[in-house]
């Protein structure tokens, strides 16, 4: 069972192949609670495949996923969600034709006498957004289609909080955002961590990574090259690790 120093999620030798392509070749990674772990790597390094294995979308061919000390099998997104793993996808995976409340509760609606309990869901969604200081949305009943990129990202993140997820995986959360909206989303990431959620963040943007991450894990060609606390790594080292798999540099001070 879980011990105090046991990380929330532990991957051991996770392997995934697509035909002849080995997307993941025995990846090890620990994701501790209450911290942002950034996942860096070039295109095709296997970052997306790795998070899809954690999110239950792909089944690994080999290796172990250990959740709170026990090995688990994730046969589907619902199984991962039931454990408390929520993924905020790059393409956001929101339904444009539904409103904010409906999107936040999608798949876990509250019912009252067999009917949707709109009122209770609307109150809970409103409270969550207010707690996270997401204050730019005009109404929780507006359709997601009418939201800006940053607002959509906030809704997707608030959904993870609402569902009391222990681990929130974010795939390029700031890729399509402007400066102010990026700021808003990164603040939200720190808010999550301060509340004890674990965050696994994929980002190409090194500025973002060094603003919010506590640990940086670097992948290259389907392998985990290195995992370091944020104080023992800098942008040049990350680039070295991403491109060559090693780095002799000292951390720039």
């Amino acid at each position: 069972m879980s011990t105090p120093d046991e990380p929330l999620l532990r991957l051991r030798g996770v392997t995934k192949t697509f035909g002849a392509v080995e997307a993941l070749a025995g990846v090890d990674l620990d994701v501790p609670g209450g911290a942002v772990t950034a996942l860096a790597g070039d295109n095709g390094a296997g970052k997306s495949t790795l998070i899809k294995c954690i999110a239950g979308i792909y089944a690994p061919d080999a290796g172990e996923i250990i959740w709170e000390g026990s090995p688990v099998r994730l046969d589907g997104p619902a199984a991962a969600a039931a454990l408390g793993i929520q993924t905020v996808y790059q393409d956001l995976a929101l339904c444009d034709n539904l409103d904010i409340v409906q999107n936040m509760f999608l798949g876990r609606e509250r019912l009252r006498r067999g009917q949707l309990d709109d009122l209770s869901m609307e109150q809970a969604a409103t409270d969550t957004l207010r707690d996270l200081a997401v204050t730019t949305v005009r109404s929780v009943r507006q359709h997601v289609a009418s939201l800006s990129g940053g607002q959509r990202q906030s809704v997707a993140i608030a959904k993870a909080v609402l569902w009391e997820s222990k681990l929130v995986i974010m795939d390029e959360p700031t890729a399509a955002l402007g400066v102010a909206q990026t700021r808003m989303v990164l603040d939200l990431v720190r808010t999550l961590v301060d509340r004890g959620h674990a965050v696994l963040l994929i980002s190409h943007n090194m500025t973002d990574v060094f603003q919010v991450a506590d640990r940086v894990a670097v992948m290259r060609q389907g392998r985990m090259v290195d995992v370091r606390p944020i104080g023992e790594i800098d942008q040049r080292i990350v680039v070295d690790l991403m491109t060559t798999g090693q780095s002799d540099r000292e951390v720039a001070r």
């Binding site: 979308i57 997104p77 993924t87 393409d91 929101l94 339904c95 539904l98």
Partner: peptide, 19 residues
Amino acid sequence: GLYVYAVGGNAEAARRAGI
């Protein structure tokens, strides 16, 4: 009914929501 709208709006999002 909500799921009908969700699937029609974004089938992939509905699938990821476990529908």
